Simulated assay, not measured.
Amino acid sequence: MEDAPRTKRRRTDAAADETAPLVRSDEFWFDDGNIILQVESTQFRVAKSVLSRQSSVFRDMFALPLPADEPTVEGCPVAVLQGDTELDWVLFLAVLYPTSYVEEAPTVGLLAAMLRLSKKYDFPVFRKDCLSRLKTQFPTTLREFDGRVSSGWTLIKFQSATSYRDLVSLAREVGLLSILPAIYAEMLTHRQSEYVLLMSRLQVGFFTPSDRLPFLAGYANLLEQQSRTTFAWLDWRGAFDDSPVPSESCTRPHECLAAVKKVALDLFSTYYPTNIKALALWDQDWGKDLCRVCRKDAKAVFDAGRAECWEELPYTFGFPDWDELKALDFE
């Protein structure tokens, strides 16, 4: 069928932006296609049925009658999609027309394209999958966060440190604010080398001003929080009245105190003053030189401190509590 509906976005090639010559996509120009999507200066020739199967917007568009005098290209009507980008559609069409049976974790760029276009053109299945990936990758509970971190699996392909910056921007763009605390926490806690790179670029606009403030505030807050919660058991200087190590039941307090000092200096010496480990998993090496009682008490304080840090995490980065933050999600 060569007919297609007339839409407000449709125009002839002559009416296209004359500043950029039209080009045909090398990858997505199919001889049996019956609709041409024009995005910026690129044209894609695809099948109406492929778009209609997933999208109610395209399904309704193609159901409208096409005027007899509607200009066509090689017998195909042209739909000019204003406001979209060529890159988003290249990424999106690669999902609609896959070249491999192997399912790989999507990049942040692909997620962004899928979320933008699936919302605009109503591809509910794709949008649901993308949102599920983001919420699972960056959950709102410590149990889910620990499960993903300890197993090492990921639903998103991180290509570089800039992937996190792009994720922050994407979360704000689509109104998925509940994933931001976990994104920031992972940047600071589990990807220390990339975090150093991020910090070095903050001065040259690596983050937007709206993103830079919560990130830096959270960094400073986590430094303070971990000393009084997760790592309060390392209080060998006596800053806190209820330091658990050495324990009252400890049979070798001098040895355990020396062990605590060693761990504290290894983790937070002056050479590594920015070391954020507020949500790190317990390392068995930390307690290997402690007596059984002190090791048990230290880990109990550590676990309770991590739970407290997690509950405070939204506040740490300047957001409301978890429940209110989830309620603010647009999705």
Score class of each variant (00 low, 15 high):
Ser200Thr: 01
Leu93Gly: 09
Leu93Phe: 04
Lys299Leu: 14
Thr270Leu: 14
Lys277Thr: 02
Asp31Cys: 08
Trp29Ser: 00
Glu312Gln: 13
Glu311Asn: 07
Phe268Asp: 09
Cys294Lys: 05
Pro71Phe: 10
Pro106Val: 03
Arg143Asn: 06
Thr162Trp: 09
Pro273Thr: 13
Pro65Asn: 06
Arg6Lys: 13
Glu308His: 14
Lys326Leu: 09
Ala79Phe: 12
Leu180Gly: 03
Phe302Trp: 14
Pro209Phe: 09
Phe28Met: 03
Glu40Trp: 00
Pro246Ile: 01
Lys48Gln: 10
Asn34Ser: 11
Gln82Gly: 13
Asp283Trp: 10
Phe138Cys: 10
Tyr315Gln: 08
Glu312Asn: 15
Asp69Pro: 01
Gly83Gln: 15
Phe158Pro: 04
Arg127Thr: 11
Ser150Glu: 15
Asp329Arg: 06
Pro246Tyr: 01
Ser269Tyr: 05
Glu74Pro: 01
Arg11Cys: 01
Ala68Ile: 08
Asp242Gln: 11
Thr162Glu: 05
Ala258Ser: 12
Leu223Ser: 04
Phe123Gln: 05
Gln137Leu: 00
Leu22Arg: 11
Asp303Thr: 12
Ala232Glu: 06
Leu177Met: 08
Gly287Phe: 13
Ser100Trp: 04
Tyr164Ser: 05
Leu279Thr: 03
Ala217Val: 04
Glu255Arg: 02
Pro5Tyr: 07
Ala259His: 12
Phe317Val: 06
